[in-house]
Amino acid sequence: MWKARGIRGVLLGPCDKELCQPPFEWNDLAWVAIGHSLSLPLLHRVRRDFDADIERAIARLTQKGGHRPGFLSEPESHHLFHTSLLRSALTYYHTSGESCPEPYIELPFNDVSRFRAWIKSMRIDSLIVSRPMPLLQSAVGRKLPSVILSPNEQGVIPERCDGFIANYQAMGHTSINLMHHLLMNRHLGIPELPQTMLASSPWHQFRTAPGKFAQ
């Protein structure tokens, strides 16, 4: 279908759900995936460097006196954040010498009771959160220093949270340049050696007003 329309390359943008082996005709087109949505097949990809962002978040929280960060996400974005958050959590507590049996947890946005129990039992003193979870974060009596990896679509940011805004413009430009290279060299189909290009995200200090943030 795409080839009949004169399309030679396809950019696969990020999706809300994880994609695994979608039924596309791969062989005659050049492909570049943007983001983490496509798990298989393995294509050339441009995505956020979540590991670098989380490392920077940990450093910020440490500056604020946090030594037992909790890593929090929600099931809906498991495919986006799970691997990086879990890896960073295990690495942090392995190297810090602190003991924390469950440093990473996935919770629905409204599971307040389990969130409170996790904070108390793990003695969490700061948070790295995949996306804003205001109901859970406001349920803690004391305000925990928090870093948001990605704001939600409404731009609602909990009070006293800092975080990142993905540099989608840079990822888009990089994806187009990579696609141009593939087409010029006739690298079509599923690559034998897929490349991944990473883009770190600029840091922002969020205001309390929804949808507004300051650099």
Rank of each mutant, 00 (worst) to 15 (best):
P210A: 04
P103A: 09
Q169A: 09
K212Y: 09
Q21R: 10
D125R: 07
R114T: 15
M179H: 04
D51Y: 11
L183F: 07
L90C: 03
M179S: 09
P23A: 15
N177S: 14
R60V: 03
G70C: 05
T95H: 10
M122W: 05
E192N: 07
T95L: 13
V10F: 06
I165T: 00
S138P: 00
P134L: 02
A139C: 01
I176E: 06
M1S: 11
W2K: 06
Q195L: 15
F164L: 00
P210I: 03
G6F: 09
H187T: 08
D125L: 08
H82A: 08
V147E: 00
D49H: 11
F50Y: 14
L198A: 02
R186A: 13
K64H: 12
L90E: 14
G9V: 12
A214K: 08
K17C: 02
D28Q: 11
S138R: 10
E192D: 11
Q205D: 05
L29A: 07
R48M: 11
D53T: 05
I165K: 00
E159Q: 08
N152H: 02
C161L: 00
L61P: 05
S77P: 01
I119N: 08
Q205Y: 05
L42I: 01
V147Q: 00
L90F: 02
L188T: 07
L135E: 15
R8I: 03
V147H: 00
Q205V: 12
P75I: 13
V32A: 05
Q154W: 02
E76T: 12
G65Y: 02
G35L: 08
L198C: 02
P132C: 01
R5A: 15
M197A: 03
H94F: 10
M122Q: 15
W26E: 08
S37L: 01
E102N: 15
A30H: 07
E76S: 13
L43T: 09
P103H: 13
L183R: 10
T208N: 04
A89Q: 11
S99P: 01
G189V: 05
S88T: 03
T62K: 13
L188F: 14
I54Q: 05
E18M: 14
A33W: 02
P191Y: 11
F109D: 12
M171C: 03
I124A: 03
L136C: 09
P69L: 10
W203I: 00
A166T: 13
A214P: 00
Y104P: 05
S121I: 11
A52T: 05
S77I: 12
H67F: 14
I176N: 06
L12C: 03
N185W: 04
P22M: 06
L12I: 14
V112A: 04
I190P: 04
V46I: 15
D28L: 10
F81H: 14
R68K: 12
G65A: 01
S39A: 14
P191K: 07
H78L: 09
N27F: 06
S130N: 08
W26M: 08
R68A: 05
I165G: 00
L80N: 14
S99L: 07
D111W: 06
W203H: 01
I105R: 15
H173K: 13
